[in-house]
Amino acid sequence: MDWNVYLSGEIHTDWRQRLKEGCEANNLPVVFTSAVTDHEASDAAGDLLGKEDSKYWRDHKSAKVNAIRTKTLIENCDVAVVRFGDKYKQWNAAFDAGFCAALGTPYITLHDEEIIHPLKELDAAAMAWAKTPEQVVEILKYVMTKA
């Protein structure tokens, strides 16, 4: 069985690539999905429906168009990995974690110790907290291969 792993969160570091390479190196049966990681394309998704003069309405339309993808992929994943970086506030990742919690979808948070406090509720609902993508690989390896 292939596991469907949804990747959520910050897009400015190589954590996704490290996770994918680790799973590949361990021959784990994983299919990765995620939101659109091209920031400009994601911000402009609502422009497909016509340009907006208001920033609010542009963001509103883009959020709804993007939600078609994220909602569908999260609802159909086996587990999600939600990454929080320290440089940017990932409100969308926090929303994804809350959505997983509401659906009962297991998720793993991935972040440094410095931001434990602001993420305490999200960590409390997570099945695991990891500090590195390599730890996530070890968790996936364990749950997929141990009898």
Rank of each mutant, 00 (worst) to 15 (best):
D2N: 11
W3S: 15
V5S: 09
V5Y: 07
V5Q: 08
G9S: 07
G9L: 13
E10M: 10
E10I: 05
T13Q: 02
R18H: 10
L19H: 12
G22C: 04
C23N: 10
L28S: 06
L28K: 04
P29E: 09
F32E: 07
F32V: 10
T33M: 02
S34V: 07
V36F: 06
V36N: 13
T37S: 06
D38I: 03
E40K: 09
S42N: 02
S42T: 08
A45Y: 00
A45P: 00
A45C: 00
G46Q: 02
L49G: 01
E52D: 12
D53G: 14
Y56M: 10
W57R: 05
K61C: 12
S62N: 09
N66S: 10
N66A: 09
T70H: 00
T70E: 00
K71T: 08
K71A: 11
K71N: 11
L73Q: 06
I74D: 02
E75M: 01
V79I: 10
A80Y: 11
V81G: 04
F84L: 01
F84R: 00
K87T: 08
Y88V: 03
Y88G: 01
W91H: 11
F95T: 00
D96C: 01
A97V: 09
F99Q: 03
A101D: 12
A102N: 09
L103G: 04
T105R: 01
P106C: 14
P106N: 10
P106R: 10
T109A: 03
H111C: 07
D112E: 15
E113Q: 10
E113G: 04
E113I: 07
I116C: 07
K120G: 11
L122G: 04
L122V: 12
A125R: 00
A125V: 02
A126G: 00
A128V: 08
A128R: 03
K131Q: 15
K131C: 12
T132C: 12
E134L: 01
V137Y: 06
V137K: 03
I139T: 12
I139Q: 08
I139E: 13
M144P: 03
T145C: 09
